[in-house]
Protein backbone atom coordinates (compact mmCIF):
# COMPACT_ATOMS: atom_id res chain seq x y z
CA UNK A 1 0.00 0.00 0.00
CA UNK A 2 1.49 3.34 -0.95
CA UNK A 3 1.49 6.24 1.45
CA UNK A 4 -1.51 8.05 -0.02
CA UNK A 5 -3.61 4.88 -0.04
CA UNK A 6 -2.58 4.16 3.55
CA UNK A 7 -3.55 7.68 4.58
CA UNK A 8 -6.94 7.32 2.88
CA UNK A 9 -7.51 4.01 4.61
CA UNK A 10 -6.61 5.52 7.98
CA UNK A 11 -8.96 8.42 7.38
CA UNK A 12 -11.73 6.03 6.44
CA UNK A 13 -11.17 3.82 9.49
CA UNK A 14 -11.05 6.88 11.77
CA UNK A 15 -14.40 8.02 10.36
CA UNK A 16 -15.89 4.56 10.93
CA UNK A 17 -14.59 4.58 14.50
CA UNK A 18 -16.05 8.03 15.11
CA UNK A 19 -19.43 6.85 13.85
CA UNK A 20 -19.14 3.69 15.91
CA UNK A 21 -18.61 5.89 18.98
CA UNK A 22 -22.03 7.38 18.16
CA UNK A 23 -23.56 3.90 18.14
CA UNK A 24 -23.83 3.73 14.34
CA UNK A 25 -24.32 -0.01 13.78
CA UNK A 26 -23.73 0.18 10.06
CA UNK A 27 -20.36 1.90 10.53
CA UNK A 28 -19.45 -0.73 13.11
CA UNK A 29 -20.33 -3.52 10.68
CA UNK A 30 -18.22 -1.87 8.00
CA UNK A 31 -15.34 -1.43 10.45
CA UNK A 32 -15.55 -5.14 11.22
CA UNK A 33 -15.68 -6.00 7.52
CA UNK A 34 -12.57 -3.96 6.79
CA UNK A 35 -10.40 -4.92 9.75
CA UNK A 36 -11.48 -8.30 11.13
CA UNK A 37 -9.38 -10.49 8.82
CA UNK A 38 -6.20 -8.65 9.79
CA UNK A 39 -7.07 -8.63 13.50
CA UNK A 40 -8.11 -12.30 13.42
CA UNK A 41 -4.75 -13.17 11.86
CA UNK A 42 -2.98 -11.29 14.67
CA UNK A 43 -5.01 -13.20 17.28
CA UNK A 44 -4.49 -16.57 15.57
CA UNK A 45 -0.77 -16.06 15.43
CA UNK A 46 -0.58 -15.12 19.10
CA UNK A 47 -3.00 -17.66 20.53
CA UNK A 48 -2.41 -20.50 18.04
CA UNK A 49 -5.91 -21.73 18.68
CA UNK A 50 -8.90 -21.01 16.48
CA UNK A 51 -11.55 -20.97 19.20
CA UNK A 52 -9.44 -18.75 21.45
CA UNK A 53 -8.67 -16.38 18.55
CA UNK A 54 -12.38 -16.14 17.75
CA UNK A 55 -13.13 -15.34 21.39
CA UNK A 56 -10.39 -12.70 21.48
CA UNK A 57 -11.66 -11.10 18.27
CA UNK A 58 -15.22 -11.11 19.59
CA UNK A 59 -14.24 -9.57 22.92
CA UNK A 60 -12.04 -7.01 21.19
CA UNK A 61 -14.88 -5.82 18.96
CA UNK A 62 -17.33 -5.71 21.87
CA UNK A 63 -14.78 -3.49 23.59
CA UNK A 64 -14.35 -1.39 20.43
CA UNK A 65 -18.12 -0.81 20.31
CA UNK A 66 -18.08 0.48 23.89
CA UNK A 67 -14.81 2.39 23.74
CA UNK A 68 -14.57 3.63 20.14
CA UNK A 69 -14.79 7.15 21.55
CA UNK A 70 -11.50 6.74 23.32
CA UNK A 71 -9.77 6.35 19.96
CA UNK A 72 -10.68 9.91 19.09
CA UNK A 73 -8.49 11.18 21.90
CA UNK A 74 -5.63 8.93 20.88
CA UNK A 75 -2.94 9.86 18.46
CA UNK A 76 -1.87 7.45 15.81
CA UNK A 77 -3.38 5.29 13.12
CA UNK A 78 -6.74 3.63 13.80
CA UNK A 79 -5.33 0.31 12.60
CA UNK A 80 -2.62 0.58 15.26
CA UNK A 81 -5.20 1.26 17.93
CA UNK A 82 -7.34 -1.69 16.85
CA UNK A 83 -4.30 -3.96 16.73
CA UNK A 84 -3.39 -2.88 20.27
CA UNK A 85 -6.89 -3.68 21.50
CA UNK A 86 -6.67 -7.19 20.02
CA UNK A 87 -3.08 -7.82 21.12
CA UNK A 88 -3.85 -6.73 24.67
CA UNK A 89 -6.89 -9.00 24.72
CA UNK A 90 -4.72 -11.89 23.50
CA UNK A 91 -1.98 -11.15 26.01
CA UNK A 92 -4.52 -11.13 28.84
CA UNK A 93 -5.83 -14.50 27.66
CA UNK A 94 -2.31 -15.93 27.29
CA UNK A 95 -1.19 -14.77 30.69
CA UNK A 96 -4.31 -16.11 32.31
CA UNK A 97 -3.66 -19.62 31.03
CA UNK A 98 -2.21 -21.97 33.59
CA UNK A 99 1.34 -22.92 32.69
CA UNK A 100 0.71 -26.57 31.82
CA UNK A 101 -1.94 -25.74 29.24
CA UNK A 102 0.35 -23.16 27.68
CA UNK A 103 2.02 -25.51 25.34
CA UNK A 104 3.64 -24.97 22.02
CA UNK A 105 2.45 -28.29 20.64
CA UNK A 106 -0.57 -28.34 18.41
CA UNK A 107 -3.83 -29.96 19.34
CA UNK A 108 -6.34 -32.07 17.44
CA UNK A 109 -7.59 -29.06 15.51
CA UNK A 110 -4.34 -28.92 13.65
CA UNK A 111 -5.96 -30.11 10.44
CA UNK A 112 -8.20 -27.06 10.11
CA UNK A 113 -5.78 -24.62 11.68
CA UNK A 114 -5.18 -21.66 9.41
CA UNK A 115 -1.72 -20.64 10.49
CA UNK A 116 0.50 -21.77 7.64
CA UNK A 117 3.37 -23.87 8.88
CA UNK A 118 5.41 -22.72 5.92
CA UNK A 119 4.40 -19.07 6.33
CA UNK A 120 6.79 -16.27 7.12
CA UNK A 121 8.70 -16.59 10.37
CA UNK A 122 8.30 -13.91 13.05
CA UNK A 123 11.58 -12.32 12.03
CA UNK A 124 10.54 -12.24 8.37
CA UNK A 125 7.27 -10.63 9.39
CA UNK A 126 9.13 -8.09 11.44
CA UNK A 127 11.16 -7.23 8.38
CA UNK A 128 8.20 -6.92 6.04
CA UNK A 129 6.01 -4.62 8.15
CA UNK A 130 4.10 -1.69 6.70
CA UNK A 131 6.61 0.95 7.72
CA UNK A 132 8.95 -1.47 6.10
CA UNK A 133 11.83 0.78 5.14
CA UNK A 134 12.28 2.32 8.58
CA UNK A 135 11.54 -0.78 10.59
CA UNK A 136 13.81 -2.92 8.39
CA UNK A 137 16.70 -0.59 8.98
CA UNK A 138 16.10 -0.54 12.72
CA UNK A 139 15.48 -4.26 13.06
CA UNK A 140 18.49 -5.10 10.90
CA UNK A 141 20.58 -3.08 13.30
CA UNK A 142 19.61 -5.37 16.20
CA UNK A 143 21.89 -8.25 17.14
CA UNK A 144 20.41 -11.64 16.20
CA UNK A 145 19.30 -12.71 19.66
CA UNK A 146 17.53 -9.44 20.38
CA UNK A 147 15.84 -9.52 17.00
CA UNK A 148 14.58 -13.06 17.41
CA UNK A 149 13.37 -12.57 20.98
CA UNK A 150 11.42 -9.43 20.10
CA UNK A 151 9.85 -11.02 17.03
CA UNK A 152 8.75 -14.11 18.98
CA UNK A 153 7.35 -12.00 21.79
CA UNK A 154 5.53 -9.70 19.43
CA UNK A 155 4.03 -12.18 17.00
CA UNK A 156 3.49 -15.17 19.26
CA UNK A 157 2.91 -13.44 22.59
CA UNK A 158 5.60 -15.46 24.36
CA UNK A 159 6.49 -14.44 27.92
CA UNK A 160 10.07 -14.17 29.16
CA UNK A 161 10.14 -17.74 30.46
CA UNK A 162 8.52 -19.13 27.31
CA UNK A 163 11.07 -17.24 25.23
CA UNK A 164 13.86 -18.68 27.34
CA UNK A 165 12.50 -22.19 26.80
CA UNK A 166 12.04 -21.72 23.07
CA UNK A 167 15.40 -20.06 22.48
CA UNK A 168 17.19 -22.38 24.95
CA UNK A 169 18.83 -19.46 26.69
CA UNK A 170 18.94 -18.50 30.38
CA UNK A 171 16.03 -16.33 31.51
CA UNK A 172 18.35 -13.46 32.42
CA UNK A 173 19.87 -13.44 28.95
CA UNK A 174 16.47 -13.32 27.26
CA UNK A 175 15.27 -10.55 29.56
CA UNK A 176 18.28 -8.44 28.77
CA UNK A 177 17.96 -9.12 25.01
CA UNK A 178 14.37 -7.88 25.14
CA UNK A 179 15.20 -4.83 27.24
CA UNK A 180 18.21 -3.77 25.20
CA UNK A 181 16.52 -4.65 21.90
CA UNK A 182 13.54 -2.44 22.74
CA UNK A 183 15.81 0.43 23.78
CA UNK A 184 17.68 0.21 20.49
CA UNK A 185 14.52 -0.13 18.46
CA UNK A 186 13.10 2.95 20.13
CA UNK A 187 16.05 5.19 19.58
CA UNK A 188 16.37 3.99 15.99
CA UNK A 189 12.66 4.51 15.17
CA UNK A 190 12.65 7.88 16.93
CA UNK A 191 15.69 8.96 14.95
CA UNK A 192 13.88 7.89 11.79
CA UNK A 193 10.97 10.10 12.86
CA UNK A 194 8.50 7.31 13.42
CA UNK A 195 5.95 6.94 16.17
CA UNK A 196 6.86 9.69 18.56
CA UNK A 197 4.25 10.32 21.26
Amino acid sequence: MDEAAAARRSENLAALLARTALADERAFAELYRQTSSHLYAVALRMLRDKAAAEDALQEAFVSVWHHAGSYVAAKGRPQTWLTSVVRNRCLDLLRRRVPDTMTLTRDDDEGEFDLPATGPTPVELLLSGADAAMVRTCVDALPGGQRQAIALAFFQGLSHSELAAQLREPLGTVKSWIRRGLERLKSCLDRAGMAGP
Partner: peptide
Protein backbone atom coordinates in the same frame (compact mmCIF):
# COMPACT_ATOMS: atom_id res chain seq x y z
CA UNK B 1 3.65 5.54 22.08
CA UNK B 2 5.05 2.03 22.54
CA UNK B 3 1.90 0.46 21.16
CA UNK B 4 2.25 2.81 18.23
CA UNK B 5 5.88 1.84 17.67
CA UNK B 6 5.18 -1.86 17.80
CA UNK B 7 1.67 -2.36 16.43
CA UNK B 8 2.71 -1.25 12.94
CA UNK B 9 4.84 -4.38 12.83
CA UNK B 10 1.67 -6.47 12.74
CA UNK B 11 0.69 -5.04 9.36
CA UNK B 12 2.74 -7.70 7.62
CA UNK B 13 0.72 -10.64 8.92
CA UNK B 14 -1.27 -12.20 6.05
CA UNK B 15 -5.00 -11.67 6.77
CA UNK B 16 -7.27 -14.60 7.66
CA UNK B 17 -11.05 -14.23 7.32
CA UNK B 18 -12.73 -15.11 10.61
CA UNK B 19 -15.79 -17.40 10.55
CA UNK B 20 -19.17 -15.64 10.29
CA UNK B 21 -20.13 -16.85 13.77
CA UNK B 22 -17.74 -14.30 15.31
Amino acid sequence: SWELRLAGLADAIPPVTPPARV
